[in-house]
């Protein structure tokens, strides 16, 4: 065989070997587990700690209030929608949640032409001058 062909063949073999070596080292082990990507990435993305505890977590200790809420207009609300993030309180019940105020009610119930008709809305300036909605309304069992 002519030497230049032999050289070429050896060079080709070398390049192919280098390619397979590079593949061997660089392709992650979980690649191709579910598709053309790294399967372990799913687990890494799922590794974060949840920030919002969720209504079911509240239910484990505050069953009464959650049941009361379930019968009322506000039944679809998560506790944390109004009370704020509770993960710290779940880990240590001594950590109290911040006192919630007027702004929480107004945030949803202030009248706006963009809001759907089914929602109970008030023009707060005409409705009430104070800042303690709970004087008249119980947020766990609200009545218009």
């Amino acid at each position: 065989m002519p030497p230049q062909i032999i050289r070429l063949v050896l060079l080709t073999i070398g390049i192919v070997c280098a390619y397979f070596m590079a593949r061997y080292f660089l392709v992650p082990p979980s690649f191709g587990e579910y598709g053309h990507y790294r399967g372990a990435a799913l687990q890494e993305i799922a590794n974060r700690e949840p920030f919002w505890a969720g209504r079911n977590t509240c239910d484990t200790c505050h069953k009464e209030i959650v049941q009361k809420l379930a019968k009322a207009e506000h039944q679809g609300l998560s506790c944390e929608t109004c009370h704020g993030p509770s993960e710290a309180h779940v880990k240590d019940p001594e950590v109290k949640l911040p006192q919630m105020g007027y702004d929480k009610c107004v945030r949803c119930h202030e009248a706006s032409p963009s809001r759907p008709k089914w929602l109970h809305q008030v023009t707060v300036a005409d409705h009430y001058t104070g800042n303690v909605c709970t004087e008249c309304h119980d947020p766990h069992q609200p009545k218009p």
Partner: peptide, 23 residues
């Protein structure tokens, strides 16, 4: 958006769904 992948894999709802007051 990861669809709150760390929440749905733990059986929780995504944060936006959990907190939305009007479903």
């Amino acid at each position: 958006c990861t669809l709150c992948y760390h929440r749905i894999t733990r059986g929780l709802k995504p944060a936006c769904v959990e907190i939305c007051p009007s479903q």
